[in-house]
Amino acid sequence: MLRLHCPNCGVDCDETELSAGGEAHLTRFGPGSEDDDFESYLFMRKNPKGVHFERWRHVMGCGKWFHAARNTVSLRVYGTYPAQVTAPPEALLAEIDAVEPGWRNKEEA
């Protein structure tokens, strides 16, 4: 039963107050885009064993979406941040580097 901090209202949410929204920072491909790009936007998801950036909505609370950086194995939460960004904040990435050295290489592999 996860607990995530909602950066919008400041509440430490119980998982039952949240709804999960899957992988974060997808790029939307609309009309005119290539089939491969559209397929990747609609269907292809990372599902990593380790560091994952994901979307959550505080549905039983302020109703706002936010992002969480979380380890899918240890369930460690590196941080949560607003939904209105297209990439994780640099400071957060640096923190993850510090505790999970080499995670970026794993992600590329």
Binding site: R55, R57, W65, A83
Partner: peptide
């Protein structure tokens, strides 16, 4: 309503 809010908050903010 959730569908509308999702696009407003996370895509076309």
């Amino acid at each position: 309503h959730a569908h509308l809010e999702e696009f407003l908050q996370t895509e076309w903010w």
